[in-house]
């Protein structure tokens, strides 16, 4: 086993941080360590937190983490913010709301840019969850970017997904739309001191009545005021209840299988894309085909066919 993998397993912060960097950069030297730590993963409960920007995700994570720490649990936090499609840079600012956790040895926070992923996550997030899990964190919290309606990839990685809503973002038809509003294991109506909170809760309740009428478990709805820590204790109890429910039913295995499937697809996608778009043998050909498409000399489907036929032979 590589030294860095051993150190990750012992909970060493610098080793954890470095292995995350290697995984994020698609550095081939990360592969061996990821292989070594995999047998030690699967113990952490993974909580996904998603919601529109400004809904209070980071603040809620701060309060949740404080309570988990009081219970003696260690916490890993992955905070994702968008990467610029123009410069490739990112401003990662979620730590601002979690500043007080910095010096707590039982908490490890990592900020990530999406680096081209569109589903609300970062491409390397699967690796980072495994690393924090293997390092012995009891709970791993993944904060998505501020989402719109369709960024639902968080369900592929989280055991428990929290969808954070705030009052005043639209009428009841918004809650009925497909996408983000469908993926919650727990709904959290945050900023519950704002006007319109009763209506928002009522709308989500009617949504749950419609969607959960046939199901064994009815999705709970909680009101919180994260900045004052209100409702967070109740939220932790609901997360525990959900964890128990998952383990009692077959759903836990189903969720974990879904995660590994998504992770496998992501690894293959990444390597295949790098192979086609970065390797010397294809790079020029791809550029040439794009030129030809622009000039209407070939259509995109035929161009894709041409590239794939070269790989598949």
């Amino acid at each position: 086993m590589k030294d860095i993998a051993k150190k990750v397993l012992s909970g060493d912060s610098r080793a954890i941080a470095r292995l995350i960097t290697l995984a994020e950069n698609n550095d081939p030297s990360a592969n061996d360590s990821m292989k070594d730590i995999h047998p030690h993963t699967g113990k952490a409960h993974v909580i996904g937190i998603t919601g529109v920007m400004g809904s209070g995700k980071s603040t809620l994570i701060y309060e949740l983490t404080r309570l988990y720490r009081k219970q003696g649990k260690t916490v890993g936090i992955i905070a994702i913010d968008p990467t610029s499609p123009f410069s490739g840079g990112a401003l990662l600012g979620d730590r601002v709301r979690m500043m007080e956790l910095t010096m707590d040895e039982g908490v490890f926070i990592r900020s990530m840019g999406t680096r081209g992923m569109l589903g609300g996550l970062a491409s390397a997030v699967y690796d980072v969850v495994e690393i924090l899990d293997a390092s012995g964190k009891d709970v791993v919290i993944v904060e998505t970017v501020g989402v719109g309606q369709a960024e639902v990839d968080i369900i592929k990685i989280a055991d428990t997904t929290l969808v954070i809503i705030v009052p005043g973002l639209g009428d009841s038809i918004q809650t009925l739309k497909a996408g983000v509003m469908e993926i919650a294991d727990i709904y959290v109506v945050n900023k519950a001191d704002r006007a319109g909170v009763e209506q928002t809760v009522a709308e989500v309740e009617s949504l749950v009545d419609i969607t959960c009428s046939e199901k064994e478990r009815k999705t709970p709805i909680l009101s919180t005021i994260a900045k004052h820590g209100e409702g967070v204790k109740e939220l932790i109890i609901e997360i525990e209840n959900h964890e128990k429910y998952l383990k009692k039913t077959k759903e836990f295995e189903t969720k974990r299988r879904l995660r590994y499937e998504a992770e496998l697809i992501e690894i293959i996608r990444k390597r295949l894309m790098n192979f086609i778009f970065d390797e010397e043998q294809f790079k020029d050909k791809v550029e040439l085909l794009i030129d030809q498409i622009s000039k209407k000399q070939i259509d995109p489907h035929s161009a894709a066919e041409e590239i794939l036929s070269k790989i598949l032979k």
């Binding site: 990467t83 610029s84 123009f86 410069s87 490739g88 840079g89 990112a90 401003l91 990662l92 600012g93 730590r95 601002v96 500043m99 910095t102 900020s111 840019g113």
Partner: peptide
């Protein structure tokens, strides 16, 4: 922080 972001860097801002 913003200028570095626009230069393609990942900037962690802590407050």
């Amino acid at each position: 922080a913003r200028a570095l972001r626009d230069a393609g860097m990942e900037v962690i801002y802590t407050g």
